[in-house]
Design a protein around this nucleic acid. Structure first.
Lengths: 223, 223
DNA sequence: TAGATTGTTAATCGATTAACAATC
DNA sequence: TAGATTGTTAATCGATTAACAATC
């Protein structure tokens, strides 16, 4: 019954949220069916790729008609594991941490930030949106009392490694790292970075390419 | 003289900022040379991959010794185009936009946010760190008066497409999109997403895999 | 029916990894 | 010198894309 997630390629996983957003939009607009062709067109992908991706979710379509939007949504949500709610703690209540705590989109992913921790005592007792802020030294006790799967790291790069190790020592098995620092942790810990530097590097590279493409064109024009 | 960036694979581009951070750290610690083996060990990569990546920057090492840290740093910075400063405007001065405007790491990338724009008049005239906030309706005039290459988008998903189109119509050729929305823009515009949903999808998938790995192990153990 | 769209199998493409000679 | 490390060439691996029969 369950489609084994282990075989789904990471590039496919990365595209699933885009499909999901678009499908939900179509659903709100009252549509019932959609073709891979349409999805591809809208997202700038090739139809064949969309079909391949969809087949990973286990959903089958009907030739000429396409896929049932509601079934596709359910399948993607399930494939991503977003149908089970997951609790997370946030460490670091600075500007970025604060923005993450207040972000309302997370419940779409089944993610709930239940508490935040900061080293700065001025912040203790305050709330970031709905999320209470405690002292870093309370992390261990908090994690003993609550079942939390994920640690969201938004501390300065300088402290990222030590905080990560603290979380791991408290039993956290997955870390979403927003600090600009590569963490060195045991194999068994899942780490996912959201690294501005990496993202900007790709943007920079694309811009550079675009410019040299244009140079290329003008060169050719001059021949 | 210049290494043509167009041939450097995107996966390599994505790893360069990690090398750069680590190299700078070694430099601060007073080291002069480093081997690909060491870098690989520290970042959880394979030495062969680090060597391949480094070769893309045009830097050669010395067998048994490794690479000159300062030259490697310069080469990576140049390869990424981070040695030229780039001005950007930010659109959306909410929690995330505010965090981006105040982020001090951008000058490492040669990126400078010179102005922010928001639809909410309460924010006009304020400053996010050093960055002044203006009305969205001032964007066009501002871009006529200042040379800005990049638009940083941190508006609600609902408005992302229209704001992006506005930026493009004002001549912006590269957009760094933090809104959870896939933009549909002309080919010539470079778009880079930093999408929390995508990042979290990968984290979710990795956790799921890890769990089924464990299941697998216990199954095997029972044989 | 005709034609658009699906799902599958095979080919292509590109990145990673292995193998190994060169070298400090 | 011996051995660690480099750079290059070739093999492998995995994702994308093409081709095409099936089908509504």
């Amino acid at each position: 019954m369950d489609i084994p997630n282990r075989d789904i390629p990471i590039p496919t996983i990365k595209r699933l949220p885009s499909y999901l957003r678009l499908l939900k939009q179509y659903q709100e607009e009252g549509q019932k069916m959609v073709s891979a062709t349409t999805l591809a067109e809208e997202l700038g992908l090739k139809p064949i790729q969309v079909r391949k991706d969809i087949s990973c979710t286990g959903i089958e379509g009907r030739p000429k008609v396409g896929f049932t939007i509601s079934r596709l949504i359910d399948a993607i949500v399930h494939t991503l594991g977003w149908d089970n709610s997951t609790d997370a703690i946030l460490v670091g209540a600075g500007h970025l941490g604060s923005a993450l705590a207040r972000y309302e989109g997370f419940d779409t992913y089944g993610l709930k930030i239940v508490a935040a921790f900061d080293i700065d005592e001025v912040k203790w007792g305050a709330k970031l949106g709905e999320v209470p802020v405690y002292s870093i030294s309370d992390i261990s006790d908090y994690l003993k009392a609550h079942h939390v799967n994920i640690g969201v790291l938004a501390v300065p790069a300088m402290h990222a490694q030590e905080v990560a190790e603290l979380l791991v020592s408290c039993g956290i098995m997955a870390i979403w790292n927003f600090a600009p620092k590569d963490l060195k942790l045991p194999e068994r810990v899942v780490v996912q970075r959201t690294d501005l530097a990496t993202s900007f590097a790709v943007l920079s590279a694309k811009v550079k390419r675009k410019i040299s493409d244009e140079d290329l064109v003008s060169e050719v024009d001059e021949w």
